[in-house]
Design a binder for these strands. Structure first.
Length: 540
DNA sequence: GCCGTTTTCGGCCCGACTGTTTTCAGTCG
């Protein structure tokens, strides 16, 4: 039986969705008022005849009928109609506190954002604050709510979970110092998406005795992420841990090995391999490379420069000087500033005069460093619908390098997307293809592309491909790295940083790149400043 | 859509709070 509160909520929702669709404001007001009377009402609506419902202040015959329909059938046709013509993600936004119909309408119609995930991404890129009624506080508030919302959907970004996972592991190890307790499964393998914190142990853990305010016993979560503790006998710990920490494909290579070893290194040694870290245990075909003395799998220590960053010139949070200094003080050799280009109106893309201004500032900044550190002039140039870039050639040729990315009109079939990308790749001024599919993990899938054709085109034109290291992108997907390397393409692991701290996204890109076996030789920003400088100029 | 008459159309207008603006708009309960 429906409660008054449940009925009132449906009427309230009706008012809100009608407002999204620009219905008569007085009708909307009526339903909003009806909601207010209903939630304060004494006596159960479900027990009232329709005549009595219609006598309630603010409820007339039309609303009374809708309430009866709801009580008798569980549905309301009028509400269903509006729900059918509204994207599910937009309806979801209405459930977020602080987002009412007016703001949601603005988000949907003005910003053209239709899912909670896209909205979160827009918050991270400071895109909301450019709209009237939205400021930094509202944006931060929405962001917090969305992260919570996303964190409750059953899948999580590795980047969001791993610190909590390590914290939880630490907590358990302190409590049971003499037992085997380790992270296992997807979280240990640093998969871009994980289901939570997987822990493998040989002790029966008594969670209720653990002292930590982040531990939510009722919901089995630690810092809002679900945990899964599997207890197994000590004797099978290593074999189970190893099996849980490899892909199916990778594990096939060890079918004939006795996994009951004293540690994982022994298992690898039985096949004549060196120890392979869990995040690299993906493709069986890559294993032999680990025995090649020339093979240098990329790692964070190899990263020499930070490519693809934004500043306050477009939609970044920090100034060019702040960003450059931050990268400099973290020991890198160079910084590539790639703000948005002029057609990216939503992100404050740079018109020509602002470009000149930025170039002058870059020259000024470069003159101040006396240790060889260099800021390179770049742009994240929008790939327009027809595949062209959005500046004239005489502008494009003045950049040190150009990153070409698709940002708008993402609804394309595979042929359209592929030819649009290839046209941009064939542009003589394109240096790097940015986030090739536009995907946002857990939010939107990205347009389909013919990877083989796109990678072949990059090879033919000497264009590097970005592995966008934003943990919500990780695009190029690592599974295409072996083919890209086969074609001897350079991969740039780029943070797409919109603030100083997001420079460190590079780490997640490196994790992903290692899955695909990317070597330092094929990592563009593993080149030192001079080699990088030479590489981009030979491309020009 | 509801209401209430100076009855059948014209007006409908919660208050506190917050954030964005700079005197107001949106949201909540």
């Amino acid at each position: 039986m429906l409660t008054n509160k449940q009925i009132a909520a449906k009427i309230d929702l009706l008012a809100k969705v009608m407002e999204l669709h620009d219905e008569n404001p007085f009708k909307i007001k009526t339903y909003a008022n009806a909601y207010l009377s209903l939630r304060k009402l004494e006596g159960s609506l479900a027990d009232m005849p329709i005549q009595e419902i219609a006598t309630i202040k603010g409820i007339g015959s039309s609303t009374a009928e809708k309430i009866m329909e709801l009580i008798q059938t569980g549905h309301m046709k009028a509400l269903q109609h509006y729900q059918d013509i509204t994207p599910a993600g937009v309806l979801e936004m209405l459930t977020i506190k602080g987002l009412g119909p007016k703001k949601v309408k603005q988000i949907w119609k003005e910003m053209e954002i239709e899912t909670a995930g896209e909205l979160l991404y827009a918050c991270n890129e400071n895109r909301l604050i450019h709209y009237s009624g939205f400021g930094t506080k509202v944006q931060a508030d929405i962001k917090e709510k969305l992260e919570y919302f996303q964190a409750s959907q059953g899948k999580y970004l590795y980047a969001h979970v791993h610190q909590a996972a390590e914290g939880f592991l630490h907590l358990l190890k302190n409590k049971y110092p003499n037992q085997q307790i380790e992270l296992s499964g997807d979280i240990r393998r640093k998969m871009p998406e994980v289901k939570g914190i997987e822990i493998l142990t040989d002790v029966s853990i008594s969670i209720s005795t653990l002292q930590d305010e982040s531990l939510d016993l009722e919901n089995n979560t630690y810092k809002s992420f679900p945990y899964f503790i599997e207890t197994i006998p000590s004797a099978s710990f290593i074999s189970t841990w190893f099996s849980r920490s490899c892909s199916e494909d990778f594990l096939v290579a060890f079918e004939d090995v006795d996994l009951a070893a004293q540690d994982e290194a022994t298992i690898f040694a039985a096949k004549g391999y060196p120890y392979i870290p869990a995040e690299c245990r993906e493709l069986k075909a890559l294993i032999p490379a680990f025995n090649n003395p020339e093979f240098r799998l990329v790692s964070m220590e190899d990263i020499k420069g930070i490519v693809h960053n934004h500043s306050t010139y477009s939609d970044g949070l920090h100034t060019l000087q702040q960003m450059a200094d931050y990268v400099h003080t973290h020991g890198y050799q160079y910084f590539v500033i790639s703000d948005h280009s002029k057609s990216a109106g939503y992100a404050g893309g740079l018109k020509e005069d602002r470009l000149y201004e930025q170039w002058r500032e870059i020259d000024h900044i470069n003159a101040k460093y006396n240790d060889g550190f260099k800021v390179f002039k770049s742009i994240e140039s929008d790939i327009l619908i027809d595949g062209s870039l959005d500046y004239a050639n005489e502008i494009l040729q003045q950049f040190d390098l150009v990153i070409a990315s698709i940002h708008s009109v993402l609804n394309m079939d595979i042929d359209k997307a592929t030819s649009r990308l290839i046209k941009a790749i064939e542009n003589p001024y394109t240096t790097i293809l940015g986030h090739p599919t536009g995907r946002l993990l857990l939010a939107r899938p990205g347009y389909a592309v013919d990877y083989l054709k796109v990678i072949d085109a990059c090879a033919a034109n000497g264009v590097a491909i970005e592995l966008n290291a934003n943990p919500q992108r990780l695009d190029l997907d690592w599974t295409w790295i072996p083919y890209a390397m086969e074609k001897d393409i350079m991969i740039a692991i780029n943070p797409d940083a919109h603030s100083m701290v997001s420079i460190h996204y590079v780490k997640y890109g490196v994790d992903a790149a290692r899955k695909g076996g990317l070597t330092t030789t094929n990592c563009l920003n593993a080149l030192g400043v001079d080699a990088f400088s030479r590489w981009i100029s030979q491309k020009k």
